[in-house]
Simulated scan of single mutants.
Amino acid sequence: MAGEQGLPKIPNLQVAELKFRVQQNPQELEHLKADILKLIEEDDMLPFYQLTCKELNWKEDATLVEKLEAKNKAELEILDKKISDTEANLGESDIRDAYMAKGEYLCKIGDKDACLSLFRTILDKSLALGQKLDVVFYCIRLGLFYMDTDLVERNLDKAKGLVEKGGDWDRRNRLKVYEGVFHMYNRNFESAIDLFLDAVSTFTSTEIMSYDEFVRYTVYMAMVTLPRVEIKSKVIDNDEIQQRLNCSLPDTKQYVTSLYESDYASFFESLFDVESFMKLDRYLYKHYRYYIKEVRIIAYSQILQSYRSVTLQYIADAFNVSVPFIDKELARFIAANRLPCKINKVRGIVETTRPDSKNYQYQQLIKQGDHLLNKIQKLSRVINL
């Protein structure tokens, strides 16, 4: 993909990712601190540096603070002077550009409050639809930078409203990635995969992640949401995804192909890599236990679908684990009604029970009907009052 089509990395989400990794695993501090400080200094990020020192219990470097403060002050003075000059001598377009230049700088250094205040001022001015969307996208990225979910959600709603009024092709596709990331962060994996698959062939949002990262997220979301036949058609047979899997994501390729090809031992090995990645990922760390559990259930369901009964030893050998481990695993998921089978410990086999789909639908209808009646009764009491 052409990274040149992406917007400037303002704010630079990489430094927020590195900071998060240190927060999750303090042992990484020694080899990541230098990288964090380098990125902070490159973008004159004094507000972010001071916040990082406070959150990570770093002692502030007085020399660095003085240096960054001087740079921030000098640049803001230049930008404020440009705003004054354009307001006195030039037209609306130049005035808007001058304000945007200052807003971009405040966003770049991580001054969240000042940046949002200025962007609100800019949005109150006369702007074309595309320019309004660009400002809203800055606010979304700033929200992702600080993981301010309320800020992200409010601006996503604004962006969707603006796009419906006639956003161009590039901004529509960019919004799909932004919205997909937010859904992924909130464990709405079904909505995330729909948006990610729509954006696979048109991805240009390198301001928030690389294309390799985007493909990894797309595969992870697909594995836990799509049926096997759709994983084949939409992921494994997708030329854009395959190109990245073959070139730079061999671990992700093994993860998706091993489950599809029923190579369960390799699949379990891949799960260790997936779990390690998710634990240190800003968007997925909250969900890694849920995610790993769900894909294990998918794998167990897949192997059990082929048999009326199968030995525990066979399943254990397929996954390259011990019989006691697989016995405990299956028992837990059976008890939670997640696997349609039962274990015969005397014979050492697992017997699958084919669910009656019509009876299941009937039970679901009754359950949902009772739920609806309860809501109507509660509503009627409120109306009567």
Rank of each mutant, 00 (worst) to 15 (best):
H183K: 09
K328I: 03
A159F: 13
R338K: 15
R174N: 11
D94W: 11
D35M: 08
Y314W: 12
N173H: 15
E207W: 00
N344P: 03
L79M: 04
N337T: 08
L175C: 14
S84C: 10
I122W: 02
Y290S: 07
R244T: 15
D44I: 09
K132E: 11
M221W: 01
V274P: 02
S266R: 00
V200N: 01
V65F: 00
E69G: 15
Q364C: 03
E87P: 04
Q254K: 13
K59I: 10
I376S: 10
K71C: 02
E69Q: 07
L46Y: 07
V274H: 05
A74V: 07
D239Q: 10
M221R: 08
Y105D: 03
Y307L: 12
S262E: 13
Y138F: 03
E55G: 04
I36R: 02
N320Q: 14
E153L: 12
C115F: 08
I298N: 08
K367I: 01
G91Q: 09
T225A: 03
I349M: 02
T206H: 11
E42F: 03
K232F: 09
Q50P: 00
M147I: 08
H31K: 03
F272E: 14
T218F: 05
Y146N: 07
L127G: 03
C115E: 05
S322F: 05
L385T: 07
V346A: 14
V65M: 04
S233N: 07
L245M: 02
S126R: 15
V350M: 07
S191C: 11
T206F: 06
E207V: 08
Q242S: 12
A336M: 11
N12S: 01
I303M: 13
L280Q: 11
D370Q: 12
H31C: 06
G103R: 05
Y217S: 05
Q50A: 01
I83R: 05
N12C: 06
K71T: 01
V274E: 00
I366G: 02
N320S: 13
E28M: 14
T63Q: 13
Y260K: 05
L259I: 15
V135F: 08
T149P: 00
F272S: 14
G161K: 04
M223W: 09
F268E: 04
V181P: 00
P26C: 14
T206C: 06
L90F: 15
K342T: 04
I315N: 07
T353S: 08
Q24A: 15
I109M: 12
I383T: 12
R21L: 06
T352M: 05
D148W: 12
Q361V: 04
E269Y: 00
L339T: 12
L79A: 03
Y185A: 15
A318L: 06
D80S: 07
A101E: 14
A101L: 09
K234T: 01
Y362K: 11
I303C: 15
Y362G: 06
D281Y: 04
E164Y: 11
V229T: 14
G130C: 07
G103A: 04
E351A: 13
F325T: 06
L127S: 10
K9M: 14
K328S: 14
E60G: 02
D251T: 08
D237Q: 15
L226V: 09
V323W: 02
D44T: 08
D212K: 01
F325Y: 06
E28V: 04
R332N: 10
E164T: 15
L280S: 10
R96H: 12
E30Q: 07
R289H: 13
L68W: 00
V346N: 11
H31E: 05
P8R: 00
N384K: 13
Q243I: 12
R120M: 05
G348A: 04
